[in-house]
Computed example of a mutant assay.
Amino acid sequence: MSSVTAGLLADAATLLLTHEAVPLEQVVAGMPTTGYATIDESDALEIGVWEMSIGAMSDVEVDETFVVIAGAATLEVLEPELAAIELAPGSVVRLTAGMKTVWTVREPLRKIYFAS
């Protein structure tokens, strides 16, 4: 995780993110990695940039709204069971804490997130 200094421009599209391998228990396909940087953080809200490489992983979500700025992926919400969401630049999605998901990334996915 890195952080951006207040008052400085953060270009979410080019911000350098350090990737780590997804834990094996979360890997569904391939060898995905993820990276993120926190832009701002308070007791009420965290704003950041998150990226995932090609592959698939499972996750349990936090309360979050995000905007996709690059890439292509399918987000499956397994619990509660919802229709799959096709993600592309401009997609805006709201997730709630405890949702069980599978992220299948076809082109490296980058999003700006707002999490509480």
Rank of each mutant, 00 (worst) to 15 (best):
M1R: 11
S2I: 13
S2H: 14
S3K: 14
G7L: 09
A10Y: 10
A12N: 05
L15H: 03
T18E: 12
A21S: 15
P23T: 05
L24M: 13
E25W: 08
M31K: 13
P32M: 03
P32F: 03
P32H: 08
A37Y: 09
T38S: 12
S42C: 09
I47K: 05
I47W: 00
G48Q: 04
V49E: 01
W50S: 04
I54E: 13
A56N: 07
A56Q: 00
M57G: 08
V60Y: 04
V62N: 08
V62I: 14
T65W: 03
F66V: 03
V67Q: 09
A70R: 09
T74M: 10
T74F: 02
V77C: 14
V77Y: 08
P80I: 08
A83E: 15
A84F: 00
A84Y: 05
I85T: 07
E86H: 12
E86Q: 14
E86F: 02
G90W: 00
V93E: 11
R94Q: 15
A97D: 12
G98K: 06
G98Y: 10
K100A: 03
E107Y: 02
P108M: 02
P108C: 02
L109Y: 00
L109H: 00
R110D: 01
R110E: 00
I112D: 02
Y113F: 12
Y113N: 06
S116Q: 13
S116K: 12
S116C: 06
